[in-house]
Write a protein that binds this DNA or RNA. Structure first.
Lengths: 181, 181
DNA sequence: CGGGAAATAGAATGTCAAGTCTAAAAACTC
DNA sequence: GAGTTTTTAGACTTGACATTCTATTTCCCG
């Protein structure tokens, strides 16, 4: 579903990928395709957070922020710039048509934003950021910029846009670096 | 297609929307659905640029940039935060599976980025921006941030993320304002 | 080992969508 | 206004896909 979209993934594709030879299995474990999609969203949320939390959890300096940026860029390179964001792709496809999916995606984004915010807050507590920096707003801006960067990466098959927008946001945050305001 | 996705839009839906009562018409004017999708991308590209160019063409100050931001936010409100970006939604759905669509989308983004760049360049020429500001990079960052903002708006049904990321980018550009570096 | 519950197979159904085909209507040309 | 081309109707074909059903197998527990 990540590779071909929800609509572009048939139950048969799923069975094949799961190396399972009967639809009854799928319908035994999931009520229907929508329920399966919900599970996919949960799975992808955990996957993304699993990747991001280690990097965000110990932000203490701009080097840490840069390391996060580099890891994200590298991850997209590693997958040939295909696929965009695991949550973003689903959000684009489902937000307007599947309310339950949208709700779960919003919840996923909230967790993600939390993780970023906590990282930035840690930075602030360690004195790398000014007291007037707003971790919540900066986290939302960073996450949003990242979503755009991942979408543009997918379209361009090139990480330039992602790098540029993340660098710009990090520069923006640097305006709040101690001893600069 | 903008509202329900390409996959979620049947030929019948199209006939109904066009108030036409025969598939033969569709296939007379378009070879197949993919060709129609190409036309939709072109149409949406023109639509977006038609909306953006007037705002971007006469950027001469930060007020102009702010006016652009406000117009974008208002436009999303006007459509109840549904639908995301006319190009971005298509990009998310088609980039990985339809190479021709991807090519056209990339071309559309290039035109869009051009328009933003020219606006920023005008700002620089009018002395609102430093000579060391790079309109090309800033334009790419701005467009990318906007894509993320529109996607998040669609998911959250709320323009906060869009506002926040655009404000952050504009602040970032303001770092290049004359008499500030 | 034996009997009940859970899991799996695989065929089958119904729906819907993309695209085709034949023929009729309109428009254009001379 | 006859003949030709373009455009439109509308039925039809084909295939795919989500979901269901019946039957069989496997597992679990005493």
């Amino acid at each position: 579903m990540y590779e071909n979209g929800v609509a572009g993934t048939s139950t048969e594709d799923i069975l094949k990928a799961a190396r399972v030879s009967s639809p009854s299995q799928l319908y035994h474990y999931f009520g229907d395709k929508k329920a399966l999609v919900q599970a996919v969203i949960e799975y992808q949320t955990e996957h993304v957070l699993g990747f991001q939390r280690p990097l965000l959890g110990r932000l203490d300096s701009f080097e840490g922020l840069q390391a996060w940026r580099d890891a994200v860029v590298r991850a997209q390179h590693a997958r040939d710039c295909r696929g965009g964001c695991p949550l973003g792709s689903l959000a684009a496809e489902l937000s307007d048509t599947d309310p339950q999916a949208r709700a779960r995606l919003v919840a996923g984004y909230a967790q993600w934003q939390d993780a970023i915010r906590e990282g930035l807050r840690a930075m602030r507590e360690r004195g790398a950021l000014d007291a007037d920096a707003d971790p919540d707003r900066l986290a939302l801006a960073l996450l949003t910029a990242l979503q755009g960067g991942l979408l543009m990466t997918q379209a361009h098959r090139d990480t330039t846009a992602l790098e540029t927008v993340l660098d710009a946001m990090i520069e923006r945050i640097r305006c709040h670096a101690t001893g600069r305001a």
